[in-house]
Structures are given as C-alpha cells and as structure tokens.
C-alpha cells in the first residue's frame, strides 16, 4: 500500500470551456491518518478541489490517485473507491424519506451486502458514539441542524471509510450547533481517521489539523503545519486573508 491515501496531481477544473479556472493545477498528497484542513476565501476552489478527490466533480485535467490507483482513469470503477471515501456535505443531504437508521444502513446493506442485523448493530453503535441513539427511528426533518450533521457523519462512517472528506460541514449551522459537530470531528481525528476538511473554522484548523492548505484563485498558495500557516504566514495573500478572519 502506498504511503499516500490520496494523491492529487496537477488537478484542473475549468468551466465554460476554460473561461473560468476553478482549479488551476493543484497537487497535494494526503498521508494515512493525517488531518488536512483546506482554508481560503470563497471562490478559491477549495470545495471544488475536495469534490474532485472523489470525482463528484470530474477534473478537466490532471489525475487523482487513491491508494495508488488513478480514479480519473475511466477503466477504474469510481463507485468502488467512493465506498472507501466518506463525504460530509454543507447541507447534510440526509435522505428525507428514510428514518435515521435506514439512512445509515442503506449503503452497507446494498453495497457491502451486510445483513440487516449487522448493519443496524453497527449503526446503533455509531449513534451511541455521537449521542443520538434515541433518534434512530426519527426522520431527518425532525432533527436540528447539528444533529443532522452528526448523523451525516456517522452515515458515512457506516461504510468503514479509509478517508473522510468534509465540505464546509459547519457552514450551514446555527452558531450554537457548530461545537457539537466539531466535537465529533475531533473525536474522529483522535481515533486516527484520515480527514480532508474544507472549513472556515480557523480554531479547528489550528487545533486538529496536521497540515493546513491555503488556496486562492484555484491554486494552492501556501501549505504547512498550522503553526507555520497561522503564526508565520509567508504569502501576502494569506496574511491578508488571516488578518480578515482571525
């Protein structure tokens, strides 16, 4: 197994036949067990970059390797690789027509061919972990935003992913609910999960991140440890950004 779980090589994403360069040659390697936080102003391409990692956005150019396999190569079945890459969205995207438990067991039962009992046992264990076992039979619309996002995280965990991708997981939440979601993510990081997190939560980036990537205009401007990025920024654009958000 290669050292890098995800390896992005010169990834480009153009819209309108190249008129808009959302990603303009981004390369990054994610190590196993590492927490990488991607920050940057809106429109900098950080979400697009994250979505390219599991091909929700198909790159215009460049390659993405997952466990050493080029997933941008059409010959490789992307669905198999996505099973190992959990994703959490800004707007939760829970399935509103299914109960919490069914939300969590659908993919393991259909894709991993787990038995109902096995899938439900695992789901209940995860629900205990995020403190929501009593909501198993509720429907998504009956939950608060923070609860929804916690469920979205454990729904992804039900597939036993090797890496978790977070696309601004706290941006759509009421301020008082941000904490409970970040807490779950910290716990996950402490358990050794590989994570790529796009966020505006600088506190989280500094505390939990092993590495921070700062992006602007579709490029990686600076990359380093949280100390390097937050305490000793080099690029003028990063300094300007930090002066505004900190």
């Amino acid at each position: 197994m290669s050292e890098y779980i995800i390896s992005a090589k010169n990834v480009q994403k153009y819209f309108n036949n190249g008129a808009i360069k959302a990603l303009d040659g981004v390369s990054a390697d994610i190590k196993r067990g590492e927490v990488v936080v991607v920050i940057g102003p809106s429109g900098s391409g950080k979400s697009t970059f994250l979505r390219c990692l599991n091909l929700l956005e198909v790159p215009t150019g460049g390659s993405v390797y997952v466990n050493g396999v080029d997933i941008t190569d059409k010959k490789n079945n992307i669905n198999v690789h996505r099973q190992k890459m959990g994703m959490v969205f800004q707007h939760f995207n829970l399935f509103p027509h299914k109960t919490i438990l069914k939300n969590m067991t659908l993919a393991p039962m259909q894709l991993l061919k787990k038995s109902k009992e096995e899938a439900e046992a695992q789901a209940m264990k995860l629900l205990e972990r995020v403190g929501l076992p009593d909501r198993a039979d509720a429907y998504p619309h009956q939950l608060s935003g923070g609860q929804k996002q916690r469920i979205a995280i454990v729904r992804a965990l039900c597939m036993d992913p090797e890496v978790m991708l977070f696309d601004e997981p706290t941006s759509a939440l009421d301020p008082e609910m941000v904490g409970e979601v970040l807490e779950v993510m910290k716990q996950l990081a402490a358990d050794g999960m590989t994570m790529v997190v796009v966020t505006h939560e600088m506190g989280f980036a500094r505390e939990v991140g092993d590495r921070v990537i700062f992006m602007d205009e579709g490029k990686i401007v600076e990359m380093g440890t949280p100390q390097q990025i937050f305490d000793n920024p080099q690029a003028p654009r990063l300094k300007e950004f930090l002066s505004k958000v900190l």
Partner: peptide, 15 residues
C-alpha cells in the same frame, strides 16, 4: 429533488 441527494448517494458508492 435537490441535487445534493444524488451527490450523497454517489458519495456513498452507489452507482
């Protein structure tokens, strides 16, 4: 249906 639903399904590994 919100397009996030399709993305959520695909991200779990569904075709």
């Amino acid at each position: 249906i919100d397009k996030g639903q399709m993305e959520a399904g695909r991200s779990l590994g569904f075709g």
